[in-house]
Design a binder for these strands. Structure first.
Lengths: 222, 222
DNA sequence: CAATCGTATGCGAATCCTGATCATCGAAGA
DNA sequence: TCTTCGATGATCAGGATTCGCATACGATTG
């Protein structure tokens, strides 16, 4: 389980990092809003801890931008302020929970687990570079911009992402996405790969979907 | 705002009652699980505070039975135990939040308000461009002009608005609005979408309700 | 009897797939 | 190392198909 912490006070940050790593979470950290936002958009985390007061970009802003990019990762606010309104404001910005400083580490752990639980069943959200795919709402984003895909295009992209980093043979693709379980001799896959690359704006340099000649395709980070 | 407190320790009970009444909540109390359950089922409360350890019937049991009766009132657990598992157990039983004893009254207040917020704040009224939907009075307006919708039309519109900005799959719609939980092959949704668009006066340009071919529909601002 | 609900039907448009052609890759031989 | 050639993938156009829209009509309910 990967956790991103965005927090500027180094004391708290180290305390959290150490504690969470002892609980065998994988922890990444950022000490300001801009860096944090960048990391949140670039990597796939399971939970994010977000300080309310941040230099550069406030926690609320960061939270809102993360949501705007279509990312549904649970966000827990760490807040020193204790007015109700601020907290509610944070929840409206798309946060899932908040915890007030000073908090007990035990309590934080619990809240993290509560957030993780509903997502443990099936993965809903996939990422590939700047691309975010939400299988639940059937939406695809690139740099916060929604991209309209057809049924088959979406199915193909989803399949590639569920096997991210692994080579997908044509026969497997045709089985899973087209539900054809016997011999095939068709160029459909190529056509749709082409269409995907075009709609996602992939170039020669940004070849997140690569061709494996004679075998199939692979979606991977570059 | 009415609050029900189920708590056997009279010291805490009185402390809470006094504090909450000063905040102008209307407070009812019970000192054991059975009485509490009866009151929860008989009266309409806005929030319930439920002690974990109760004589007669445990807090978890009470919580579960309340939920089984279809009551969705937010429940906050007051717990002395601080193991993760008990808490998670409580949340699984249908609780919305929990707070660990000893707690600050301030914090309790915040958590109560957080629970109240989503029910009082936004749930009643939804908006979509020039359209306003009041789920309480069951009325729909466009530019201050009331639009008469049938039961199903209203249900469909409400569902779309509760998921504004998210794609609603046909199966989800048929489940939520028509309560059909198995396979369906019917064109009802289309018919009602059509009827909605017509009654709401939506045009090609004002397509607040968009079709996602092969998937479903989405209500969103344009 | 009137309002609402769900089904059936024809039409039009978005999507899907095929087949042809063009571009690229990689292996074999000079 | 370079060239050539066959094979594979990329791209495109258009015909086939599916899906959603609009409307009409019968069923149901109060």
């Amino acid at each position: 389980m990967r956790i991103l912490i965005i927090e500027d006070e180094s004391g708290i940050l180290n305390f959290l990092r150490q504690g969470l790593e002892e609980e065998s979470y994988s922890v990444d950290t950022a000490t300001n809003g801009l860096d944090g936002l960048e990391m949140a958009l670039a990597e796939a985390y399971d939970v994010m801890l977000l300080d309310w007061m941040l230099p550069g970009k406030s926690g609320v802003e960061v939270c809102r931008e993360i949501r705007r990019a279509g990312i549904k990762t649970p966000i827990i606010f760490l807040t020193a302020r204790d007015t109700v309104q601020d907290t509610v404001f944070g929840l409206q910005a798309g946060a899932n929970d908040y915890i007030k400083k000073p908090f007990s580490f035990e309590e934080l752990l619990e809240r993290i687990k509560v957030q993780l639980r509903p997502h443990s069943g099936e993965q809903i959200e996939f990422r590939l570079g700047p691309i975010v795919v939400d299988t639940q709402s059937h939406q695809v984003f690139r740099d916060s911009q929604e991209i309209k895909l057809t049924q088959k295009e979406f199915g193909l992209l989803e399949f590639l992402l569920r096997n991210k980093g692994k080579v997908c043979r044509r026969t497997r693709i045709i089985e899973s996405v087209w539900d054809i379980h016997f011999e095939y001799n068709t160029g459909v896959i190529d056509v749709y790969i082409n269409s995907l690359r075009k709609k996602l704006g992939l170039t020669k340099e940004e070849d997140y979907i690569q061709t494996i000649r004679g075998v199939g395709y692979i979606a991977k980070e570059i």
